[in-house]
Computed example of a mutant assay.
Amino acid sequence: MGFFPFTYNPDHSVIVNANTEDYLKENKQVAETIETWAWIYHGLHDAIPTTMENLWSGHQFPFRESWEELQISYTLCHFGLYKQAMCSLRSVLELGLLSVYYNINDLGHETVKKWLASRDSTDANTPYFSSVWKILISHPNVEKFQDIIDIKKRVMNLSYLHNYIHTKGQKFSNQLGLLKSNSQTFEIKGFENWLAGFKEIVLLIVTLHILKYPTSMIDYDYSLKFGIDVPSFPHMRQSNLWRLKENFPPDFIMALQKISDNDDNVKDFKNWIDNHEDMSEEDLEKQIVDMDRREIVRQGFESYLRNQFALYRADTFEALIPSVQERVKKLEFWAKENNHYEDKFPDLNRSER
């Protein structure tokens, strides 16, 4: 390779990455905060329903892209590219808003088409926030929440992220308004700025999705009815809902719960769930075995076994709980009989060890 006159380079990123790791190890509460809020955002996958009508339509694309952009933003932050991480956060916000905007009337499979296809026309452009808000506030639950908490103002307060995109002076430059070298360096201020924006965006986008899909506020263990194969109706996994309730501001939780409890669709949904037959232990075990067999076919039994150790935090086979031991033994016999025992991606899995 040639000698490039670059001061921002991969070697510096590696150093900053190590510094960031040290910072997170020394400040475990910060690391736990990022983990918790990331899981809350990830949980929106369950809130956006998939039906036969919208299957493969791309109606979930804005949220999926938003989730990927969030991961990229964190990665950029980890490597000391704070300005770029903040620019990426802006994309998280815009895409998260579009996820609700396009699906507000349950017609996302239709309304998203032109934008999704990146057509070269005005009506296919990403809409401005003013247009997005007119659609969002038309939903009765968003209107009710807005009467209690000014969520519009909080979204607009995030407009400072534009300043990173357009580099509004030194404060919003790669220097972050600090006296620092002209390369990537670990900066607590840069990391804290990112964390504040990250949490606020997760709070607002998750809130708007819940207002659109208020059944997400139902605190229920759906595995009792459906095992590990919960249908794609709008909901939030119980563990994720608990995270949300423990970390969102109390006024947000109170407003969301009140709106959800008074929603007619939520009442009908609760009645349907209550009257749905519980799943038997035999049917649940069959579900798990069927899913595990699919994993073994894709990856091989050796890879599957490592995943089981990680899932149950066990170092050895004997450390697995008895019921899992029994299942694994049966699946090992099945894998050998059907030529699915060996790891099918040895090079990839070796690099992950």
Rank of each mutant, 00 (worst) to 15 (best):
S351P: 04
R119N: 12
V14P: 00
D150K: 14
L95Q: 13
M1L: 02
N339A: 02
D221H: 10
E110Q: 05
R154K: 14
L44A: 10
L244T: 07
P127W: 04
R327I: 01
H12R: 14
I72F: 10
N271K: 03
T50E: 14
L348R: 04
S216I: 09
E32P: 04
E337D: 05
S223V: 07
L203S: 14
N349I: 00
R306K: 02
F198T: 05
S66F: 08
I34S: 06
T316F: 02
H59P: 07
Y23I: 11
E200H: 11
N163H: 11
L311G: 01
Q287P: 06
D147P: 05
G43C: 13
A18Y: 08
A310S: 03
P322S: 01
D46G: 10
E65F: 13
K267I: 01
A196W: 07
F198D: 11
S131L: 02
N193Y: 04
S138T: 09
D264Y: 01
E94C: 08
Y341Q: 02
R64C: 12
V14R: 12
D278T: 01
V16R: 15
L224A: 08
W242H: 15
K258T: 06
D22G: 11
D106Q: 06
D278L: 08
K134M: 08
T167L: 09
G169T: 10
S73T: 08
T207M: 13
L97I: 04
Q308Y: 00
P322M: 00
E352L: 07
F4Y: 07
Y82N: 06
E53N: 14
L208Y: 06
F79E: 00
F63Y: 14
N265H: 07
T33M: 12
W67F: 12
G58C: 13
N193A: 03
Q175Y: 06
S303F: 00
I296N: 02
L311H: 04
H42A: 14
T215N: 10
P49T: 13
W37V: 10
F226C: 06
V132S: 01
W133N: 07
N182Y: 05
E285D: 00
K113I: 11
N157F: 09
K168F: 11
S121L: 06
A18Q: 15
K267R: 04
F198H: 14
D274S: 08
K225E: 05
G80Q: 04
I72Y: 07
K153E: 15
F61C: 05
Y23T: 07
A85I: 07
L98P: 08
N105I: 03
Q29L: 10
L81D: 03
N19D: 15
H78W: 13
N141E: 02
H276S: 05
I321S: 03
T33H: 05
K83A: 14
L70C: 08
H45Q: 11
R294F: 00
E69D: 11
Y213M: 12
S239H: 07
T36I: 15
D263Q: 04
L70M: 14
I228P: 09
C77S: 13
V92M: 10
K199C: 15
Y74L: 12
A47F: 02
E281I: 04
Y164K: 09
R90V: 03
D290F: 08
G80H: 05
L331Y: 00
I151D: 12
